[in-house]
Computed example of a mutant assay.
Amino acid sequence: MAEISLRRARTIIRKTLDHGKAAGMKPLSVIVLDSGGNPIAFERSDGASPGRYQIAHGKAYGAVMLGMPGSAQMKRAEDQAYFIACANGALGGALVPVPGGVLVRDGKGRLLGAVGVTGDTSDNDAAAAKAGIEAAGLEAEV
């Protein structure tokens, strides 16, 4: 079974935070989940608020559990709010259906997990996640 190693998860986090800093973003928090929605690694930048773990987790968890990135979840919420509300209920209220939840795939398209980023605008969060994932040699589905 393909997976994201702890070493690679740490690389994703480091490169995501580096991207955010270089782009002048607000302090970011980043989580990497495996394909079952379990945390591999998490970091919160200095100055990031303490509630950012739950938001980052919710972005990544929604992406991996629904098999769609946060941008697609947000569109679905706009088009069919009842679906996202029901999915959120079924998954314990843990979804944060906005950009910043990014699926991670290998070169063959296999789902490895997801990255959740929070702290700046949702679109900037997603861009930082994409940069981190690609810097680790993986593919990002934003």
Rank of each mutant, 00 (worst) to 15 (best):
K59R: 04
G36P: 05
N124R: 15
A48E: 11
A85Q: 14
D125Y: 01
L111F: 07
E139F: 13
L66S: 02
R8N: 09
S45T: 09
T118E: 05
V142W: 06
D123F: 12
R76H: 13
D125T: 02
K130T: 10
F83M: 14
A48P: 09
V30P: 12
G137T: 00
G67D: 00
Y82W: 15
A136R: 01
V98A: 12
G37T: 00
G101V: 00
L91P: 02
A48F: 11
G93K: 01
K130W: 01
L17G: 07
K26L: 10
G62F: 07
G24Q: 12
I12V: 15
A48M: 08
A131W: 10
D46H: 06
G109L: 10
G107Y: 04
Q54P: 09
R7G: 13
L28D: 12
E139S: 15
S45I: 09
R8F: 06
Y53S: 08
D79P: 02
E139N: 14
L112D: 02
L91Y: 06
G93N: 06
S35G: 01
V117A: 03
A126Y: 00
R76C: 14
M74F: 14
D34C: 07
R76K: 14
I55C: 09
A23V: 07
P99A: 05
A56N: 01
E3N: 09
A72Q: 12
A72H: 10
T16W: 05
G116P: 07
I84R: 02
G137I: 03
R44H: 07
Y82V: 13
I31N: 08
R14M: 04
K26M: 07
A56V: 03
D79C: 02
Q73R: 00
A48Q: 09
Y53H: 11
A129M: 00
A94D: 11
G100M: 02
I13P: 01
G119V: 02
A87D: 08
K108A: 15
E43V: 14
A81F: 14
V115C: 02
S35W: 13
A22T: 15
V30Y: 10
L33W: 09
A2R: 09
P39W: 12
D123S: 12
M1A: 13
G58R: 03
T16E: 04
A87K: 11
I55M: 10
K130A: 10
M65G: 03
A94M: 15
L33I: 03
G37M: 09
D79I: 01
E141T: 10
K59H: 07
L33F: 10
D125F: 06
L66Q: 00
G116A: 02
A135C: 03
I40S: 08
G37L: 12
D18F: 11
A72D: 14
A85V: 09
Y53L: 12
L91M: 14
G101H: 04
T16Y: 03
N88M: 11
D123C: 05
A2D: 13
G116Q: 03
L103K: 03
H57L: 15
G20T: 06
S45Y: 07
K59N: 12
I84H: 06
A135V: 01
A94G: 04
T121K: 04
A136Y: 05
M1V: 15
I84M: 11
T16S: 11
V115P: 10
D106L: 07
E139I: 11
S122Y: 08
S5M: 07
